[in-house]
Simulated scan of single mutants.
Amino acid sequence: MTSIAERRAVVRRTPPLALVGAYVSLTKPKLVELLLVTTLPAMMLAAGGWPGTGLVVATLVGGMLAAGAANTINCWYDRDIDRIMSRTRDRPTVTGVVAPRAALTFGVILAWISLVVLGVFTTPLATALAAVAMLAYSVFYTMVLKRRTHHNTVFGGLPGAAPVLIGWAAVTGSLAWPAVVFFGIVFCWQMPHFWALASRYRYDYFRAGVPMLSVVAGPVTVARQSAAWAWATLAVSALMVPVTPQLGWIAGAPVLALGAWYVYETHAWLARIKAGAPDRPMKLFSVSITYMTLLSIALVLDVLL
């Protein structure tokens, strides 16, 4: 544990640009980018076309700040276990580049700015959903559930899928079945996505005392549950076109094909584990990112064409 004097010395030695980069890294930009991938298609589905550049920019910026705020508070709170895990030991809150109080202050400021942006330029419902999502992730997931139950990932999937609802509500000021179904797809998709990552770093989580599913259950169980959630992703995907009249075959066929591919890859992961071969969980993790990117592109193209 570094002292206050040591942390101040680290900050003084850090160049200004590197310090800015450290604060940005607390927001977990790659995770924010992945979350925002689902926001634009949700907005376009709600509008039946392009919802307007100003609204899109405000919603994406507000959503980016909200997600960044929740991630920053996560880094602030988890700095003790981040120090133990190889994947997170270089975070600025661990190295001392950003002091704990500064990180918390930064996260709170980002949260308030995000709500101001969404409140001024979008709708009250979108703003309220963003506030609930930030609280759900930074408080209920990070501070309450993450270290207490292996069901933490399932609960964490709720705020993780919230950008879909926020995007829809930003356009219409309400919610509808297409938004709920799209939310369901993103929610179910997250379980195999994150369990693959948690399997890659299962020993880190074990050392840190975090009861991820990959820590409390064997690899076969993790892969089986991932396959079950992939089937759930496909099942919910099958509802997308029926509840969304504006969608046609341009999105319908890829949505189902991508869901089937996701199911196949989770079963391939399970088969490798059962055969005693290297399980390669990061392959499924990469597939999951490609799946969500292509799904969002298909929905956008269908609306445009």
Rank of each mutant, 00 (worst) to 15 (best):
T2L: 14
T14W: 03
T14V: 03
A22P: 14
Y23M: 15
L35D: 13
T39C: 04
L40R: 11
L45M: 15
A46I: 07
G48K: 13
W50T: 15
G52R: 09
G52N: 10
T59D: 01
L65Q: 11
A66E: 05
A66N: 10
G68D: 04
N71F: 04
T72F: 06
N74D: 11
R83F: 09
D90E: 15
V97M: 07
L118Y: 10
F121D: 14
F121Y: 13
P124D: 08
A126Q: 01
A133Y: 08
Y141C: 11
T142G: 07
V154N: 02
G156W: 09
P159E: 13
A161T: 11
A162I: 03
G167M: 07
G167Y: 10
A169G: 05
V171L: 10
T172R: 09
W177T: 12
R202T: 01
F206V: 06
G218L: 05
A230I: 02
L234I: 01
V236K: 09
V241H: 01
V243F: 01
G248F: 03
I250T: 03
A253K: 04
P254R: 00
G259L: 01
G259Q: 01
W261K: 01
V263F: 00
T266E: 00
I273P: 02
K274P: 02
K274Q: 07
G276L: 10
A277I: 01
A277P: 04
P281C: 11
S288G: 08
I289P: 04
I289W: 05
M292G: 06
M292F: 12
I297C: 14
A298S: 12
L299C: 12
V303W: 09
L305D: 06
L305K: 03
